[in-house]
Design a binder for these strands. Sequence first.
DNA 1: TGCTCATATGGTAAAATCACCAAATGTTCA
DNA 2: TGAACATTTGGTGATTTTACCATATGAGCA
Lengths: 106, 106
Amino acid sequence: MTPQEKALIEAKANVFKALGHPTRLWIAEQLADGERCVCEFVEKVDADFSTISKHLSVLKQAGVVVDEKRGKMVYYRLKVPCILKYMPCIEEVVQAGIQEHIDMLG
Amino acid sequence: MTPQEKALIEAKANVFKALGHPTRLWIAEQLADGERCVCEFVEKVDADFSTISKHLSVLKQAGVVVDEKRGKMVYYRLKVPCILKYMPCIEEVVQAGIQEHIDMLG
DNA sequence: TGCTCATATGGTAAAATCACCAAATGTTCA
DNA sequence: TGAACATTTGGTGATTTTACCATATGAGCA
């Protein structure tokens, strides 16, 4: 594996890792139909302002979202919306796991 | 958010998390064109047998791969191949980040 | 049965992640 | 300018992840 290949796979893994936290995944899904300000997330998740802010920073640094400050507020949106096209496949993985679990019990 | 919704998003995040490690993502990509035995991974990655085995176990428990023992060897394959279908999008995220970095320097 | 090979599991120390609190920053408005 | 607001940053302790080593399991073969 060349250093370039290694760097690429690390960057890609980093994208998955960023989405690999329930709160961050939820945030990404919230951005499906457009931008949201930070305050909207804090309102809906029962978590500290700073916690949300740090999650957003992880998503931003992974390249999943971009932010824009307008007035007092900061708005976030998906940088590369195709990310969301992934979800049906992920749900398929989850469903397969659940089905297997049911089969095992039955 | 209902308990069901919460459980679903946690399960989905877990799939992303499983892919969110360079070695595990690499393993998943290796499985693109069919099954591989554990020994093949160990050969190509410079890591301990037990390390690879544990990564495989994470992927398995997340529902990404399935294993099958045949004779002395254990073979792994992708359970839900669509996982790989969206790599171009992930690469797009990464590329966008790199481009931005270049622009910033230039 | 006993040996060897392929893989898994348990233990452990170092590093990373997470959520909260407190304090800093930067923006608007009086 | 100064108060109020939205968000970020720094610090901390608890928990999780990771990679290695040593040991266990389980299959095939002598």
